[in-house]
Design a binder for these strands. Structure first.
Length: 559
RNA sequence: UGGGGCGUGGCCAAGCGGUAAGGCAACGGGUUUUGGUCCCGUCAUUCGCAGGUUCGAAUCCUGCCGCCCCAGCCA
């Protein structure tokens, strides 16, 4: 992470916490990250993770990991595993504080019983449809359920029978008795328990009634002694309800603070939409490198450090906002520029023959591993008569401002020699250039001339006889629209047909044995990492992101 | 037409009555054996709008306007 990144430790949440600590409202800062295990985590969750774990670390407190697993219908063990894996990969540790709302089911049931006994809750026989109809609308108050005035004894008996399995799914619910005329719809007798004869991934078949999130979250926070319960804006309306439950139950009151969730340009962030992309196979699984999931970013080659840095830089506020994905890419490049080893790879190769270089000769040059870090040392690269260079580095008819190779032009081959283009050979049928011919200047060993002659262009290259072939997966943004959810069409209509292009090229031979997910900067082309599909025989590299490309910008502007 | 939030440059975001931080993007220039990195410079007389209070307002008051969220037995 960079030293100069703007860390604003004065966001409104920190301000509130400092006040609370000063006023002794809470002694220790205890936060929690409470995912539902019904999907994979994405970068929006990373923001929340960084806030919660970051706050705990900063104030010397702790952060719990709690799975809010109250809906067995949508949850799976696979998601629990991936969530834990993702948080660890991001660099956070919840230590022994791993909890499940489902392990509070008995306690929650007792809380519910207590509310029934206080006359604060009742069993409703209305169907979901009837409940919906009687809830009223935004402008009209709701109507009381005909079962609202049942006796405490009857409610208690019914609720116990609900638990015992005496009723079918949907036959009854337990509702909080609050206020059917409240302007806050969450207070119009919200459902606390529903009947669901379903096996739960944690509690198995122990329960056939499950508490609703609204009856679970606040009390779970209370049970864990959470001091600051940080959540997203849409729960602001639920806070009065959580406060009501906590007050009636007489338990610990955490302070809930809401912040705006993260949106990113050129992608989608909702679980529902990500699920759709996965299920309809627009991408290859939850860890597809084009997805904003943590698993996807990881496989793409993003570093945990760059994601944490990004989460700090975007700040925390309550205004809905969409952060430019360029900022994420910036954080990534900043980290990788400093830390990624440089390598040479030719992604779109064309043959280059050095006519005055002996056929049977080859020699080694030392290439620096990272100009930003001399301690990274150097490695040998082999030069020979026949090389591969990037097709884009040659223009038969050079555009204005093009200072790479062209007929009669001279460039430097990085670390090696100055070469001058003497001619080209084309495929007579297609017109495609098949070979570029050149001569090298023996007085420019290592790429230095002694006569003060300067060349502007420096190209990367690979010895054809020594290079190892490889596959490059050139990833680009998944969507072509800055906001895929904004148009009239379904968001999938804005998928970028060129979000993945496979290229076959060459790499330095040692790269074939690079470990999975190892990151490199391929000189002049971008940052890449070995994909998990990579093997020694068939090395595969993912393009994490390109280098900034001033030339491409100039070309684009001239069009 | 109910309730809850939010409006500071293209995108984020500081600012908490004393005269608009910072980052990203963009645009110029310098260095450079990566058209990368790095360095230097430019980029809001103005804070959704209109009034008011004040010597002084993005900050306080009033009224408008705009955007987001809420009518799951989802979380």
């Amino acid at each position: 992470m960079s030293e100069n990144s703007t860390i604003n430790n004065n966001d409104f949440i920190r301000e509130i916490i400092k006040e609370d600590l000063a006023a002794q409202t809470y002694k220790t800062v205890i936060t929690r990250f409470p995912p539902e295990p019904n999907g994979y985590l994405h970068i929006g969750h990373a923001k929340s993770i960084c806030i919660n774990f970051g706050l705990a670390a900063e104030f010397g407190g702790r952060c719990h990991l709690r799975f809010d697993d109250t809906n067995p219908e949508k949850e799976e063990q696979e998601f629990i595993d991936s969530i834990k894996d993702n948080i660890r990969w991001l660099g956070f540790d919840w230590k022994e504080h791993e909890y499940f709302a489902s392990s509070y089911f008995e306690q929650l049931f007792e809380f519910a019983v207590k509310l029934v006994k206080k006359g604060c809750a009742y069993v409703d026989d209305q169907s979901a449809e009837e409940i919906r109809k009687s809830r009223g609308t935004l402008t009209e108050p709701g109507k009381a359920s005909p079962y609202r005035s049942r006796s405490i004894e009857e409610n208690l008996n019914l609720f116990i029978r609900m638990r015992a399995g005496d009723f079918k799914d949907g036959e009854k619910t337990l509702r909080a008795k609050i206020d059917m005329t409240s302007p806050n719809l969450n207070m119009r007798d919200p459902v606390m328990y529903r009947i669901m004869h379903r096996t739960h991934h944690q509690t198995k078949d122990q329960w056939c009634i499950y508490p609703m999130y609204d009856f679970t979250h606040g009390q779970s926070d209370a049970l864990e002694n959470i001091s600051h319960s940080i959540c997203t804006l849409e729960f602001e309306d639920h806070r009065p309800l959580y406060d009501w439950f906590i007050k009636e139950l007489g338990i610990h009151h955490p302070r809930q603070i809401e912040f705006a969730r993260l949106n990113l340009t050129f992608t989608v962030m909702s679980k529902r939409k990500l699920l759709k992309l996965v299920q309809e196979k627009h991408v290859n699984g939850w860890n597809d490198p084009r997805l904003p999931t943590i698993s996807g970013l990881r496989r793409r080659g993003y570093t945990p450090c760059s994601i944490r840095d990004f989460c700090i830089r975007i700040g925390i506020a309550k205004a809905n906002s969409t952060v430019d994905v360029a900022l994420l890419e910036h954080c990534l490049r900043e980290d990788l520029n400093k830390n990624a080893q440089r390598m040479m790879a030719v992604i779109n190769p064309v043959k280059l023959v050095v006519d005055n270089y002996p056929v049977d000769r080859h020699e080694e040059f030392q290439a620096e591993n990272n100009p930003e870090n001399p301690a990274a040392g150097s490695r040998p690269v082999i030069f020979s008569r026949t090389l591969y260079i990037e097709r884009d580095d040659f223009m038969e008819h050079p555009a204005k401002g093009f200072f790479r190779l062209f007929p009669g032009g001279e460039v430097r081959l990085k670390y090696a020699w100055y070469i001058k283009c003497t001619g080209i050979i084309k495929d007579p049928s297609s017109g495609e250039i098949t070979e570029i011919h050149c001569t090298y200047d023996p007085a420019t060993r290592g790429g230095w001339s002694t006569d003060g002659r300067k060349v502007k262009g420096t190209l990367h290259w690979l010895s054809a006889a020594h290079a190892q072939s490889a596959e490059f997966r050139m990833y680009d943004r998944l969507f072509t629209a800055i906001n895929p959810e904004a148009g009239d069409k379904e968001f999938t209509e804005y998928l970028n047909p060129r979000s993945l292009e496979i290229k076959k090229g060459f790499i330095e031979p040692v790269l074939a044995s690079a470990a999975p997910l190892q990151r490199f900067q391929f000189l002049r082309t971008g940052y890449f990492c070995t994909d998990t599909d990579s093997s020694r025989a068939n090395p595969v590299f993912n393009r994490i992101t390109g280098l900034k490309d001033t030339w491409a910008k100039i070309m684009a502007k001239n069009e």
